[in-house]
Design a protein around this nucleic acid. Structure first.
Length: 468
RNA sequence: UCCGGCGUAGCUCAGUGGCAGAGCGGGCGGCUGUUAACCGCUUGGUCGUAAGUUCGAAUCUUACCGCCGGAGCCA
């Protein structure tokens, strides 16, 4: 590389596609998507660097030094660095192109396994190290980034404090499924005392687990800082084999002091609408791609949702709606039964065709920390259901009354001594508070219209899948 | 974990008891300011693994492994 080339400003592909750049001398670095050689003495390289969906066409003239060698090595997948001038393209298909004066092959790519054709998502999952280089997975990565930013921005603007809750926890029943156990002990030589593993030998001196939720710790922070949220990885050791579950996923959990269930539902609705409109505005190109190639109508659907009220009804009302529907459900509908996927789907896809916020579930089917309603049989719980994906948010007003919480804990078979600090929050300045959990992947799943949640996280962890 | 479906060329799939196939990709050649390029030729196989039935198995049976879809659990 000459000194002149080294000092040429680097342009991202996304910027080089802008007609404002015409006449600029730039260097573009990226990976070759396709190569087309014309015998008229010119080769076209389409290059992408992840900055956007569209590729930059680099026109390599035969007169360029090392033309034959460069063109030979610039195969699909190769990384290159090209210098030249951005010009207005004389041909159809793109507004600008780079007229190369020099092209350096940074890394060649013989026998690249991803052909220039459509691959099944199942096959691409076996190529998780290369699939970010495809249009679909590049777009997913950018939308996921946009959603993450939007989440932080929303809460920041609302005056929430971003707090970090632990990933390793000593609580063995946070109320959300099977947990992964964490240990530093040698599993081949476990210290055993009276037939049981002696955890006093373990690093923490007791059994520890990967967190399934940051909620309990977020409640601690909320009862000091008022409005907080966590945003981090969570883990479920369930043997779930579905298109909607992961063993490791990212969850956003706001927790708000001096807030009841109505306030929480308002927050959830405002929050979701904001994410949807942000993505539509700021990832328009990628969303147009999903709309065209993945799920026709998804853009219009998101626009409608962002601009209309969510349907709100209580569990009891939902049961009545389902019973009146005349539908022959596989699982019977009666008060006290947990709603099945088919019931949720009926409500959100057929009855209302909109997001639905269901509230006030029977206490028996919900967690111990949810606030008992005055009727004594329901709790102030809330699920937000969206068409296609189902439950996207689960939350509740928390039980702030010491005696009620203690009783509910015992009824759930939990040892109050393990939750002494959680109970303490109800002894010292207790306050009504509420919070919810939103699965990042569920949101991206819904927004992109991708069929499988394993395709909206770069490195999915599911049973028997941890290669990358 | 349960139910159902599927494992055949690098990829997507056809072949359902009698010679192992197509399209795409790869290679070679032609053509072209090209752009899902196009045209011709060509390459390419442990039919998931193991056992069984049969004169003969990719095809039928059994077990196992893997993948996909649905259900449950949930976000």
């Amino acid at each position: 590389m000459s000194i002149e080339e080294a000092t040429t400003p680097i342009a991202r592909v996304r910027d080089a596609l802008n007609t404002d750049m015409v006449g600029q001398q730039v260097r573009v670095q990226g990976w070759v998507r396709t190569k087309r050689t014309s015998k008229a003495g010119v080769t076209f390289l389409e290059v992408n660097d992840g900055s956007g969906l569209r590729n930059l066409q680099i026109v390599v003239p035969e007169s360029m030094p090392d033309y034959a060698a460069v063109v030979d090595a610039a195969t699909t997948g190769a990384s290159i660095s090209a210098s030249g001038m951005i010009i207005q393209s004389p041909a159809e298909g793109q507004e600008t192109e780079l007229r190369a004066e020099s092209v350096e092959i940074v890394g060649s790519s013989p026998e690249y396994p991803l052909a220039k054709k459509r691959h099944s998502f199942e096959y691409l999952r076996t190529m998780a190290h290369l699939r970010p280089r495809t249009n679909t997975f590049g777009a997913v990565a950018r939308v996921r980034n946009q959603v993450s930013w939007s989440i932080h921005r929303y809460f920041h603007e609302q005056g929430f404090l971003y707090v970090q809750t632990p990933i390793i926890t000593g609580s063995d029943a946070e109320g959300a499924g099977q947990m992964f156990q964490v240990t530093s002990m040698d599993l081949k030589h476990l210290p055993v005392s009276e037939g049981l593993v002696d955890f006093s030998e373990d690093l923490f001196g007791r059994p520890t687990y990967l967190t399934v939720s940051g909620q309990l710790e977020a409640e601690i922070m909320a009862t000091a800082m008022s409005s907080v949220y966590t945003f981090g990885p969570t883990f479920r050791a369930e043997n779930s084999n579905t298109s909607r579950h992961l063993a490791e996923f990212w969850m956003v959990e706001p927790e708000v002091a001096f807030c009841d269930l109505d306030g929480l539902a308002d927050l959830a609705e405002d929050f979701l609408k904001r994410i949807f409109s942000d993505v539509l505005n700021e990832s328009a190109e990628d969303m147009a791609f999903f709309n065209q190639r993945i799920q026709p109508g998804i853009v219009e659907s998101l626009e409608r949702i962002a601009n209309s009220d969510f349907v709100r009804l209580t569990y009891t009302e939902a049961i009545e709606v389902l019973q009146r529907s005349g539908r022959d459900f596989e699982f019977p509908v009666y008060w006290g039964a947990d709603l099945q996927a088919e019931h949720e789907r009926y409500l959100t896809e057929i009855q209302f065709d909109a997001p639905v916020i269901l509230t006030d579930y029977p206490a028996e089917i919900k967690a111990f920390y949810m606030r008992l309603n005055p009727d004594g049989k329901t709790v102030a719980a809330m699920d937000v259901l969206v068409p296609g994906v189902g439950e996207i948010i689960g939350g509740s007003q928390r039980e702030e009354r010491y005696d009620v919480l203690l009783r509910r804990m015992k009824e759930s078979g939990l040892d109050p001594e393990h939750y002494w600090w959680y109970l303490d929050l109800r002894r010292f300045g207790s306050v009504p508070h509420a919070g919810f959990g939103l699965g990042l992947e569920r949101v991206v799943h819904f927004i992109t219209g991708m069929q499988n949640i394993r395709d909206v996280i770069p490195f999915p962890r599911t049973p028997k899948n941890v290669e990358f």
